[in-house]
């Protein structure tokens, strides 16, 4: 959805335009948020943060300059900022110490960081490719279990399988993934 398309929808019905925007980007925002809060927040914290992101986005809609651009970039930036804020709050509440290796501290990119980030991006892309090559339902099980922190019973419900079946498939899929990654030089 572009900002121009959204503006047109907003003139007809702001409420349904907000819902359409939410439906299109909620999974993306959730993925951005969980990427940051996976190790410090609960499911409720993440949902709270996602709702904050969309409240921010909805508030900014009137002030958006029409450029006919995809809104994904803008929403992604809002989501990352909100997720970092939440991460700081949650870490503070939990008396966690922020490491200087954290992304939040990499404000100035040195050439080493650029190289390291590029390598990380390539490795991530390879990881996702190999997960997808596992085939279904294994790839969904792995992503839901390890990226989204979903329990076996939640995954079982989502893909209409038994919890035991999900557990067993996950175990085998992990072994398979380990081998596939080893073949391309990534060790776990």
């Amino acid at each position: 959805m572009t900002d121009s398309e959204l503006k047109v929808q907003m003139t007809k019905s702001p409420a349904s335009a907000r819902r359409a925007l939410f439906d299109e980007y909620c999974n993306y925002v959730y993925a951005v948020v969980i990427n940051k809060l996976r190790n410090c927040g609960t499911r409720e914290d993440m949902e709270e943060c996602v709702s904050d992101v969309f409240a921010d986005v909805f508030r900014s809609l009137d002030s958006l300059e029409p450029r006919n651009e995809d809104l994904k970039g803008f929403i992604g930036v809002v989501a990352k900022r909100r997720a970092i804020d939440s991460y700081r709050k949650l870490s503070k509440n939990a008396n966690m110490t922020l490491s200087i290796d954290d992304d939040d501290f990499n404000k100035l990119s040195s050439s080493e960081n650029v190289v390291a980030n590029t390598e990380r991006s390539e490795q991530n892309a390879l990881l996702i490719q190999k997960v997808r090559e596992l085939g279904e339902p294994d790839s969904t099980i792995i992503i839901q279990q390890f990226y989204y922190n979903r329990s076996s019973s939640e995954i079982a419900k989502a893909i209409s399988m038994t919890t035991a079946a999900v557990h067993k498939r996950s175990k085998r899929a992990r072994e398979k993934l380990k081998l596939m990654l080893a073949e391309v030089g990534i060790s776990l």
Partner: peptide, 30 residues
């Protein structure tokens, strides 16, 4: 830990290929 701190492109790919939110969760968050 293998999915910790994924880069922006990878996060986008994951959300495209593996959407996770159920209708109930979407309604609640919206």
């Amino acid at each position: 830990n293998i999915f910790d701190n994924m880069d922006d492109n990878s996060v986008g790919t994951i959300s495209d290929y593996f959407p996770v939110l159920t209708d109930k969760e979407k309604d609640r968050i919206f």
